[in-house]
Design a protein around this nucleic acid. Structure first.
Lengths: 212, 212
DNA sequence: TAGATTGTTAATCGATTAACAATC
DNA sequence: TAGATTGTTAATCGATTAACAATC
């Protein structure tokens, strides 16, 4: 078991494996080969085996992979023993939708507090939580051991926050703002969900489909 | 001017270049070198020059890049002469937020119609548009020349749609569902925004930060 | 045992980085 | 002209794919 560290592309594929394997498990499938799985995933048998071997390789030579085992092993990898604690910054349209998503559809992450700048809504209840003033989030994170910051503020607000983010002691940022935290500080783990950038890329690819 | 086709990583970076260059332009900066830009982007001078050369290279040897020119050239690349026409499938929580986003924050894409399965809301007005029945979207797309399908339905609904998507004649999908259109059909251009997968990847990276 | 399929090493491919000649 | 910085070619790096020996 060489168990080399999984590269970022591998980590990104892990949730997809988990989705398909959960489906297979629910259908009652017991064993699956790397080529069958590759077919489902739209990848190659080699890649499937390489990927799983990053985590120790849970297959059986000559036989294939046990769906049950795969499922529980990947589950262990993706869902830590203790749920991560997340906090939302920015309770606008997008922020509220994301908060709702985390509360209802995310298994490994707990949303524990919501912050906003707008005095008109501070103090209001949202999903049973009180909307707190933005300038109190650093203290909250320090006291309440917050792991993830979900940033749904406009770019300027995010930029203004950059310093506080370090102080807050969080480990990662789920970033929906147009401010790139990662450029300034690489000790933080950042996942950017730049909707505008993503749509622009799609639009570019559609428009320039037949270039050359 | 070799102008080789831009690879996907390059296309993904293009919107970020555009963001920073727009900022520079607004600040009144006139010229910038590849190393200054690399510094802002968190990349390398080589990468900046390589990237721009995919599109013909708009720099001046010995001098650098004109911010004005860069801006207008990248703008031309990202925003086609005719705005792309998009349609929303699924007017739930997420769908409405995305629709709002496209209407207010997206320059190159026009949202022209909204579809949903829920009889309780079909016929209602949303952003001035009538919510249409889901089973009419293929016909609508064919008649109204729709370019992009924004899929914000649950996984099962998306899966059920897969065949109709081909018939509809759209060129690309902005996919928020947990159904992978791309695996089944590679003639479509698909951008996946798998929020759950993305959050899982973040969560994994935080939890396994210090592995080895 | 023979067939199948993994784990793992080697080959290939593509993207990033470095180097340098061209030129403003 | 000398200095700076690009465009472009070459080298490096990493990820994907292929090959094959191990083994169930």
């Amino acid at each position: 078991m060489p168990t080399m560290k999984a590269s970022l592309p591998v980590v990104r594929r892990l949730p997809r494996y988990y989705r398909y394997i959960t489906e297979l498990k629910n259908k009652g499938t017991q064993r699956i080969s790397s080529s069958q799985l590759a077919n489902i995933m739209g990848s190659t048998p080699s890649q499937v085996r390489q990927d799983f071997n990053c985590f120790g390789g849970f297959g059986q030579q000559g036989v294939g992979y046990s769906v049950e085992l795969l499922h529980s092993e990947i589950e262990k990898l993706l869902f830590p023993a203790e749920k991560l604690r997340a906090v939302l910054l920015g309770a606008g349209n997008l922020g509220v939708t994301i908060a709702n998503f985390v509360l209802k559809e995310s298994e490994g992450v707990n949303l524990v507090a919501i912050f906003d700048n707008d005095k008109a809504i501070i103090g209001n209840k949202l999903f049973g939580m009180e909307i707190r003033p933005m300038d109190s989030f650093v203290e909250y994170c320090q006291n309440e051991h917050v792991d993830i910051l979900i940033v749904c503020t406009p770019k300027d607000a995010a930029e203004a926050l950059a310093g506080d983010v370090i102080k807050s002691g969080v480990k990662g940022i789920w970033n929906y703002s147009h401010f790139d935290f990662s450029v300034r500080d690489d000790s933080l783990i950042v996942e950017n969900v730049h909707l505008r950038d993503n749509l622009m890329a799609l639009s570019y690819r559609i428009t320039h489909k037949d270039d050359e």
